[in-house]
Simulated assay, not measured.
Amino acid sequence: MTPDVVADVGNSRLKWGRCQPGRIAEMVSLPLDDPQSWEEQRRRWRLPQPCHWAIASVNPPAAERFRRWLQSHGEAAYLFENPALLPLHLGVDQPREVGWDRLLNAVAAHCLAAPAPAVIIALGTAMTVDVVDGQGVFRGGAILPGPRLLADALHRHTALLPYLDVSELPAVVAPGTNTGDAILAGIRAALVGGALLLLHHYADHFPAPWVFLTGGALGDLAQWNFGGRFRGTRHVPALTLEGLRIAAESLPDPPPSEAPPSSAASEKPTIPLS
C-alpha cells in the first residue's frame, strides 16, 4: 500500500508524517485527543480525498479513537496490529509486547544502515536503546525512564526534593551547586551514562554499528558523535514515521490482517538524515 499520511499515536502526542515518494516530506506533532486540531491540520496540508493512512500506536485506546475519527471523515485507515507484517525479523521472546515505536525505529534504521548493524537511541517519555543487526534482525534492547519520569520520581518518593518540569535531557553538568542543578545533573548523568554503557556493550557483540538518535527529549544529545567504535551518528527526528512509511509500503494493497513472519527489506529507501 502507498500511504498519503502516516500517524504515530503515542502516550502524550499524536505525530503525523506527510508522505512523498521515498520519504516523509513533513511531520507535525498534535494533541492526543483534540479532533479540532486534527481537522485544522488536514486543511493546512490540503490532503487528497479520500486519503490513505497507516497508523501505529503504543496507546491502543487513543489509536482506536483516532481511527474512528478518520473513518467518520471517509478516510481509509490501516492500523498495524501484527508485528509479523513488518519488513523485519524479530529476534525477541514476545514480539507482540514490543512497543511499535521501537519496532518502527528498527525498520527505518536497518534500511539506512544495512549491511551494518544499527543502534537506536530514542528519548521521550522513556529512553530506549535498541539494536538491529546487519541482517535485519531486531535483537531487543533496554528501556529507561526519561527525564520527566526521573524528575517526577525523585520528587514523589522523597520528603524534600522539589518538583522540576524536565521536558528534555538537561544541559546541567555535575557538580550542581544547588539542589535543582544537582537533580538536573544527576538526570543527565543517568541517561547519558546509561546510553554510553549500552552502546559499548552492543558494539562488543555487533561491531561497528551506526547510531541513530530520535525523540523529542534528546536535548544536546542530538549533536553528539559517539566515537571511533561506531560508523557514525545520525539524528533522524522522523525515524518512527519513516519506519511506518516503509512498513506500509511493504504491504500489498489492500494490506492483509495477518501474515507469516516477513523477512528484512531488501532495498534501502531514501530517508533524509536530518
Rank of each mutant, 00 (worst) to 15 (best):
G146P: 15
H155P: 01
G74C: 07
L30C: 13
I143P: 13
V6T: 06
D181V: 01
Q94N: 08
E26L: 08
L199A: 13
E75L: 04
N59T: 07
H201Q: 12
P207N: 10
R148Y: 15
A222Q: 15
A62L: 02
R42A: 12
A264Y: 12
S167V: 08
V211F: 15
A222G: 05
P61L: 07
Q94A: 05
S266V: 02
H201A: 11
R13H: 10
Q41W: 13
P35T: 07
V172S: 13
L239K: 02
D204G: 09
Y78E: 12
V28N: 01
W210A: 09
P272Y: 06
W224T: 11
C111Q: 14
D34Y: 02
L239C: 02
Q94K: 07
T177Q: 14
T270E: 10
L47Y: 14
P170Q: 11
G180P: 02
V58R: 05
S266Q: 04
E267Q: 08
I55N: 10
L90Q: 09
R229Y: 03
L241M: 01
V173Q: 14
A159F: 04
F80L: 07
P31V: 03
T177V: 10
A264I: 05
S257L: 05
E75K: 04
A63E: 12
D101L: 03
L197R: 13
W45G: 06
L144R: 06
I187C: 11
V98D: 00
P162I: 07
H205E: 14
R245K: 09
L161Y: 03
N59V: 02
A118F: 00
N105H: 09
A142H: 09
P35D: 11
I120E: 01
T214E: 02
P61R: 10
W210K: 12
V211D: 15
S12Q: 07
R44H: 14
P209S: 06
W45L: 11
D8Q: 06
F226Y: 15
R188I: 03
N82E: 11
A203S: 14
P261N: 09
S167C: 05
G140S: 13
D204M: 06
G146S: 15
L198Q: 14
G17H: 08
L196R: 11
N82Y: 11
A222K: 14
D4P: 06
H52N: 12
P21D: 03
D34N: 12
L88I: 03
Y202W: 12
G193C: 12
P256G: 06
D93H: 08
G99R: 03
A259D: 09
P162K: 11
E249F: 03
T179V: 06
D204Y: 05
P145Y: 10
L164F: 00
M127L: 12
G193M: 10
T2Q: 09
Q94T: 04
H155V: 01
V129H: 01
A265N: 09
T158M: 00
V173W: 13
A195T: 09
A182Y: 09
L123S: 06
T233A: 05
R148H: 15
K268L: 02
W38C: 08
I24Y: 08
A84D: 11
G176V: 04
L150F: 15
T2N: 10
C51Q: 14
